[in-house]
């Protein structure tokens, strides 16, 4: 915008305004709302750099600079919890990102629309199960005392596995339950994207003699690629967040070595005294890192495709 201004002076501005004024009018109200509800409160970030006491408020509390960030990196468990957080997110990403896409593609191939609707409705139900009930259910199923899974293992001659107390099983259980819960609900957006693909392309392909697999590869996948790429880039921003409540219910001191992540550790940190500043500092740091990841993914995407966030 500045460049245009320098080159063309007043008339440039006017032209832009004339051309775009409707667009500006359209986004005026939303922009105001974003500014009010997101930017007005942003002063709270300062809490990460001070020793916040509620009585002194945000601007009266003592400024301590990077103290909490340093404190975090001096913590003996700092490396482990970062590792656990990232690994958990990556495994999650690996499995729970493609699965909804796969499901959507499969559903797309179903010609009987009643069957399709039935499957859609059933697979989307688990999303609504509360996490407390889900974990309760899982503990029952995988119990080493009388759970069905262990009984089947025994039937095949194996020995009982104490699933919830084995650090090695934690990630599998976490990702598995996320998959079970989220696959159907997550496929909805891809179904919507699929609906937007021009049917004539399929017609043309059929005439050209393409088989099912070729149709998928050359029409369907490219058709949902923009949506997929965008969602993937944005997913990069969640590398440091995990489902805190779920982990809290699933983990125990037996599985700390794989299950203890940033959010749970920070939670225990603040359990005795509500140290808001420490939590704020960690939160800020993670946000900044996530932002860098997204930026990186976006840059990469721009290089290899046409799709990017900005």
């Amino acid at each position: 915008m500045d460049r245009k201004k320098k080159k063309e002076g007043n008339s440039g501005w006017k032209r832009i305004w004339m051309r775009d004024r409707e667009l500006y009018a359209m986004c005026l109200v939303p922009v105001i709302m974003v500014v009010v509800f997101r930017y007005f409160p942003i002063y709270g970030i300062v809490m990460a750099f001070e020793r916040y006491t509620p009585s002194k408020g945000f601007f009266g509390s003592e400024f301590v600079g990077l103290k909490y960030f340093i404190q975090f990196f001096r913590d003996p468990f700092c490396f482990r919890i970062i590792k656990n957080t990232v690994l958990l997110s990556l495994y999650s990403l690996l499995w729970t990102f493609p699965a909804p896409i796969l499901l959507a593609l499969l559903l797309n191939e179903v010609r009987c629309s009643r069957y399709k609707k039935l499957v859609q409705t059933v697979t989307y139900l688990p999303h609504f199960i509360s996490v407390v009930i889900l974990i309760g259910l899982m503990k029952e199923l995988f119990s080493s005392v009388d759970g069905i899974v262990n009984r089947m293992i025994a039937a095949f001659g194996g020995s009982a596995v104490n699933f919830f107390s084995e650090p090695g099983w934690f990630r599998t259980l976490y990702v598995g339950s996320s998959l079970w819960q989220g696959m159907g609900y997550g496929s909805i957006i891809y179904l919507a994207a699929l609906a937007g693909i021009d049917m004539e392309q399929y017609e043309a392909a059929r005439i050209d003699g393409a088989n099912r697999l070729q149709k998928i590869l050359y029409i369907t996948l490219p058709g949902i690629m923009p949506t997929t790429v965008i969602l993937l880039i944005m997913r990069m921003g969640s590398l440091f967040s995990n489902d805190f409540q779920k982990i809290l219910l699933m983990y125990s001191t037996a599985t700390y070595s794989t299950a203890d992540v940033l959010s749970t550790y920070t939670y225990r940190y603040g359990l005795e005294n509500s140290n808001y500043s420490y939590a704020a500092a960690i939160g800020l740091m993670l946000s900044a890192i996530s932002f860098v990841f997204v930026w990186g993914a976006n840059w990469f995407s721009k290089k290899v495709s046409e799709n990017s966030l900005w």
């Binding site: 974003v34 709270g44 970030i45």
Partner: peptide
């Protein structure tokens, strides 16, 4: 209403608007 202008090629406010939104995706006051 805010997404449509962003989808218009050559919209002058595209970049600033996108940045405005991206920041809110990561940073907030609490």
């Amino acid at each position: 209403l805010i997404a449509y202008p962003l989808s218009v090629e050559g919209f002058s406010g595209r970049k600033p608007l996108t940045i405005l939104l991206m920041i809110t995706m990561f940073f907030g006051g609490g």
